[in-house]
Design a protein around this nucleic acid. Structure first.
Length: 289
DNA sequence: CCAGACGTTGTT
DNA sequence: GTCTGG
DNA sequence: CCAGACGTTGTT
DNA sequence: GTCTGG
């Protein structure tokens, strides 16, 4: 699953990492404890109607979005298909929802069923997005036992396919029954990568750079999408244990992702459940091998 | 027909 | 909005 | 995901 | 135990 993540990049760095134009109005900030209902940047494909400006009949020769800007309306209209950063609230609120509270229960969507579920299928067909993250958290809870879990932090291992940023496969909606239009998103999950199964049997779908534009392009054939919804390949992620402070959403410090020593009992429980040995954990275990 | 759900996770 | 259950 | 509430009346 | 809010 994916119920908590990080976005540690400053605005300029995130814009560069995603090769996207910033339409968040400078609202991008570092966040080491992104929880459901947080408002965060997502990446969508620029659509012909998105700008509200005059539609450009030539389809892509124009790549100089940053030149010649002036004060006339529509002067900064982007090329269709360009990646754009926008703000949205985590927890998808379907267009038909009577109130926004349903979003709290729509933070993840199963990749296996997302095409047919009433809450997600229209977004899946037309409003796919990337959710930029620098890592995410999972809680280890010994089989059915202990109340409190041991949190782990998963982060990019410098694999060429992802670099320093992770892009979760997401969907977004715009809910128009409130006073203001409300943009929301959800994160797709799939079966866990091999090395992550000791924590959970589900993981967020992480898209390689080569798949980003295909995923967010509304014109992509649905048959070509399913191939993208796979567990993270080997070597993409590292993991290490972190302190329990991350559990409280009010904690936002940079130290939340710092590695901590594992409790002896927790170490044993992890090994008993088929997880990595303590020596591997203390080194930052490679996930997905 | 109307009323009510529309979701995932984990746990048993 | 659309599907399921009664 | 975890943490924290889970309720009403009346009074300030 | 289960739901809501962050």
């Amino acid at each position: 699953m994916c119920g908590r993540y990080t976005q540690k990049l400053k605005s300029d760095d995130l814009v560069a990492a995603m090769s996207a134009r910033d339409e968040t109005g400078g609202a991008i900030r570092e966040n080491t404890n992104v929880a459901p209902t947080s408002t965060m940047p997502i990446v969508v494909a620029e659509q012909p109607s998105d700008t509200g400006a005059d539609t450009d009949t030539d389809t892509g020769a124009d790549t100089d979005a940053d030149t010649g800007a002036d004060t006339d309306a529509g002067a900064d209209a982007a090329a269709v298909g360009e990646r754009v950063l926008r703000l949205a609230t985590w927890g998808l609120v379907p267009s038909w929802a009577k109130d926004r509270s349903i979003g709290a229960r729509m933070i993840n969507a199963r990749a296996e069923t997302v095409a047919v579920k009433p809450a997600f299928r229209s977004a899946y067909a037309a409003r796919r997005c990337l959710v930029p993250a620098t890592g995410f958290y999972e809680w280890f809870r010994p089989g059915g036992g202990a109340r409190r879990g041991q949190p782990f932090y998963m982060y990019p291992a410098g694999h060429p396919a992802t670099g320093d940023i992770l892009a979760f496969a997401g969907l977004y909606e715009v809910w128009r029954k409130g006073d203001e239009p409300l943009a929301t998103f959800t994160i797709l999950t799939t079966t866990a990568a091999e090395g992550l199964s000791f924590l959970h049997d589900r993981s967020p779908v992480i898209l390689p750079v080569a798949a980003w534009d295909r995923w967010i392009d509304p014109a992509t054939d649905p048959a070509d999408l399913t191939a993208l919804l796979r567990p993270a390949p080997a070597g993409v992620l590292l993991a290490h244990p972190v302190g329990t402070a991350v559990g409280n959403v009010r904690n936002k410090g940079a130290e939340l992702t710092d590695q901590v020593e594992l409790d002896e009992a927790v170490t044993e429980a992890i090994e008993e459940s088929g997880g990595p040995r303590a020596t591997a954990l203390s080194a930052g275990v490679v996930i997905g091998g």
